[in-house]
Design a protein around this nucleic acid. Structure first.
Length: 289
DNA sequence: CTTACGGCCTGGGTGC
DNA sequence: TGCACCCAGGCCGTAA
């Protein structure tokens, strides 16, 4: 579900209401997607949320302990495909597939709901001796903060398809299937092209397109295809602005050709066969023997 | 280092 | 109404 713009929208909504609030208690439903459920109950109650940040597609809740205990902890939530976080009153109706409830000291509640349970919730000990960054460690550059030079360096010389590179969280943190396809369309680059063969001119165009698409998507509060809602339960609007994603069989808004859907890098990929010229062929035959 | 694939889960849509 | 099948904003592990 959520890519950078959706997570950013949720984070902004939470950052507006959560900082300063203390977590009083944790209730859990199904926990098979939580690495260490008891750690949540052990470490969260009593701690105060100092800020809510986005790191790639992760939500990071920075926690401070009022009792002088200076060990810094963070609550890390990844939304997977169908994760949702909302704040509400404790007596608000409980949506199906709600699996975690965080009671706050102002009497409100933060809830985590996740139909498919591909998400994750875990504690990050920021002062720990090793593996300090945990799952955040391997993540690459933020697409909205990366410079063009860094972007070029990350893509150039890579033999993988550009689609796979954009989706690889170790290269860029935050891109997902929708915004990858939209960015490639704007830049007129076929998803199966190899990163290594892209010209500087094309990388420039892709860099500009990616940042424009993401910024615009944030402005429209993300894309709601089926499940995504922000922290107030409101869907995004950017899906109305998609040029190729989910538009198989419809006309390319730029040239009128029929948009196609093919699997590239293991994911559904939407593109305009006319604007986004396909690469010559993948030489796979040579590799055998 | 890369790709391909299956798996994790549930639900929506389609066609018979 | 049922069933089989395909699809889905992510990511991990395995094998080649």
């Amino acid at each position: 579900m959520p890519e950078l713009p959706e997570v950013e929208t949720i984070v902004r909504g939470l950052q507006a209401v959560l900082p300063g609030k203390r977590i009083m208690g944790v209730r859990l439903g199904i926990t098979d997607f939580i690495e260490d459920p008891s750690a949540l109950k052990e470490h969260l109650p009593g701690r105060r949320i100092s800020s809510v940040r986005r790191y790639g597609k992760f939500l990071v809740f920075d926690l401070v302990s009022p009792g002088g205990d200076s060990r810094r902890l963070a609550l890390l939530i990844h939304l997977g495909m169908t994760g949702q976080i909302v704040t509400c009153k404790p007596d608000a109706p409980i949506a199906t597939h709600t699996h975690a409830y965080f009671a706050l000291d102002d009497g409100s509640e933060m809830r985590y709901r996740d139909i498919r349970r591909f998400g994750s919730i875990r504690i990050l000990a920021e002062g720990a001796p090793s593996g300090v960054l945990g799952p955040l460690g391997p993540l690459g550059l933020d697409p909205l903060e990366v410079t063009e030079k860094e972007f070029r360096a990350a893509i150039r010389g890579r033999h993988a398809r550009i689609k796979a590179l954009l989706l690889d969280q170790r290269v860029l943190r935050g891109m997902g299937n929708i915004y990858t396809d939209e960015s490639l369309w704007h830049a007129r680059i076929h998803p199966a092209r190899l990163g290594a063969i892209l010209k500087d001119e094309e990388l420039h165009g892709l860099y500009i397109a990616m940042r424009r698409v993401l910024s615009q998507a944030i402005r429209f509060r993300g894309s709601s295809i089926s499940d995504y809602v922000d922290s107030q339960g409101t869907p995004g609007k950017f899906q109305q602005r998609h040029c190729v994603y989910g538009r198989k069989g419809k006309k390319c808004p730029r040239c009128g050709a029929v948009i196609r859907r093919e699997t590239v890098a293991g994911r559904s990929s939407y593109f305009c066969p006319k604007c986004q010229r396909a690469p010559r062929k993948t030489r796979k035959a040579h590799r055998k023997h």
